[in-house]
Design a protein around this nucleic acid. Sequence first.
DNA 1: ACCGTGACTGACG
DNA 2: ACGTCAGCCACGG
Length: 113
Amino acid sequence: MAARDDFFARVYVVVRQIPAGRVTSYGAIARAIGSAKASRTVGYAMNASHQLPDVPAHRVVNRQGLLTGKHYFGGLHAMQQLLEAEGIRVKDDQVQDFAQLFWDPLTEGADLP
DNA sequence: ACCGTGACTGACG
DNA sequence: ACGTCAGCCACGG
C-alpha cells in the first residue's frame, strides 16, 4: 500500500469524523492515524485538504485551542466565523471551553479504515 | 539522496 | 506564565 497516500487519507478520514460544534488537535489526529510525532505533517495534509468539501479543517486547531491555521482560510476571520456558526465561541483566535469541546478520535472512537 | 519548509508539540530557562 | 530551542514526520525542489 502507498503509505504516503494513506497518511493523507487517514488524516481526512479522522477530520471528517469530527462532530459539528467540536474541535480536535493536530497531535490527536496524528496519534489516531499512528504517527504521533507527525503532528506537523497533519497540518500540511490539512493545507492540501482545503480543496476537499468533506474535510472541516476549521475544526482542527492546535493543542492550545488556538486557530493557528486561520491565515490559510483566505479571510483572516473565516475560520473563526465557521466555528462560531457551529456554536463554538472564539475569543482572540482562542477557542473558549476548548477542553470541553475537544474531541479525541481515540477516546471518542473514530471510525478508521 | 540531500536540504529547506511547516496549520505542531514537548521540554527548558 | 512566557519566550525560546530542539525533535519529529512528510512533501517538494
